[in-house]
Amino acid sequence: MDIVLRATVMFFLVFGLLRLLGKRELAEMTPFELVLLVVIGDLLQQGVTHNDFSLTGATLAISTFAFWSLVLGLVAMRSRRVEAMLDGEPAVLVRHGELLRDMLKRNRLTLNEFEAEMRLAGIARVAEVEWAILETNGKISFIEAKGAA
């Protein structure tokens, strides 16, 4: 039972930390950040299973993580408010060709990063964008203005 309690605590700790990182950071990890996540995984395993290297201990820890992930997913499906709390909400970055700099700042996105995403989408100028939306998965959706292109 000790492993289940530790796994529960660690699950919510990691969940909270990943939420604090923000959408963009997770969508575009550097190689160092990927290694850091692997190291965190190893440290997490040590904190959850402690000295229990048994198959039963590993199964309990993994099952606990899967259980909480499933529960949060089901609750989010049934409640719009919980879904917004767990997954976040899309953020409008450009409205009618106007860049909303405060939204860039709020989502910790630099102008250079935003412009790079525009270029990848084949868009040269912000004026060509009717809407740009930072989706909950960290990707930016661009809707071009009518007559642009």
Rank of each mutant, 00 (worst) to 15 (best):
S54C: 03
E28P: 02
T30Y: 02
A127P: 10
E128P: 08
V126H: 00
G88R: 01
S54N: 03
I143F: 11
L55K: 15
V48C: 04
G22E: 07
L37T: 04
H96V: 06
R24Q: 08
L109E: 04
R6M: 04
I62E: 01
V129D: 02
I133D: 02
L72E: 06
M85L: 11
L13W: 14
I40Q: 06
H96I: 03
L134H: 03
V126S: 00
F15P: 01
L44V: 09
T136P: 02
M77E: 07
N137A: 00
I133M: 06
T30D: 01
E128V: 00
L111A: 14
G88D: 02
I62G: 11
V92E: 13
F65G: 15
V129E: 01
V14W: 04
A27C: 05
N112V: 09
L74E: 11
G147W: 06
W131P: 01
A149G: 15
H96G: 13
W131K: 09
L44Q: 12
M118D: 04
L70I: 05
F11W: 02
L55A: 11
F114H: 07
R95E: 12
G47L: 07
G16A: 13
T110P: 02
L13I: 15
L134D: 09
G147F: 05
F12H: 07
P90M: 02
A27P: 10
A91I: 09
E135R: 13
E117V: 11
L104P: 05
L55V: 08
I140M: 04
E25H: 15
F32Y: 11
D42A: 13
L18I: 09
R6D: 01
G88H: 01
A84F: 05
K146N: 12
V35E: 00
L34G: 05
L99A: 03
A91R: 12
V92R: 14
I123A: 03
A121E: 03
H50C: 07
L99V: 09
L99D: 04
I143L: 12
L55Q: 14
L111F: 12
R95F: 08
T49A: 08
E98H: 15
L37S: 07
G73C: 02
E128S: 13
I40T: 09
T64A: 14
A121W: 03
T110M: 00
S79N: 13
D87K: 15
N107C: 06
A27E: 03
H96R: 12
